[in-house]
Amino acid sequence: MEIAVNQYPSTNPRFHLTELNNLSVLETSVGKQSKAITLIQKAQAYQLSALPNLTGAPVTMGMEGC
């Protein structure tokens, strides 16, 4: 999945953002937290540049509201 997300990103910005998030979840599930954090940071930067007015799919880190 990493090759698909990085070398062949979706042309739809929302799908690419979702793919980055999904890859982050997979990396976390196999114990690669630092790589997952890097992917989340990449997703945040991508969201701000490609979709500055995006509603309904915010990318956050940590546990908000806890």
Rank of each mutant, 00 (worst) to 15 (best):
V25S: 04
K35H: 06
V59P: 01
N22C: 06
A45M: 09
I37F: 05
L20K: 11
N6K: 06
P13Q: 12
Q41D: 14
S49V: 09
A43V: 07
Y8G: 02
G65M: 05
Y8K: 10
F15L: 15
G31W: 04
E27P: 00
K32D: 13
G56F: 04
M63H: 12
L26A: 08
A45I: 04
E2H: 05
K42N: 05
I37V: 15
Q44D: 04
S10P: 05
E19Y: 06
I40P: 01
G65R: 02
E64M: 12
N12T: 13
V30Y: 06
G62R: 07
G56A: 02
H16N: 11
Y46R: 02
Q44E: 12
E2G: 14
I40N: 08
L51V: 09
A4S: 07
L48K: 14
L17T: 02
M63P: 00
P58L: 08
A4I: 12
T11Q: 14
E64S: 08
S29M: 08
E2I: 09
N22E: 14
F15Q: 14
I3Y: 03
L48V: 01
A4L: 12
V30N: 03
I40W: 00
S10F: 01
V59N: 04
N21S: 13
L54E: 08
L39Y: 09
R14M: 08
L26R: 09
L48W: 01
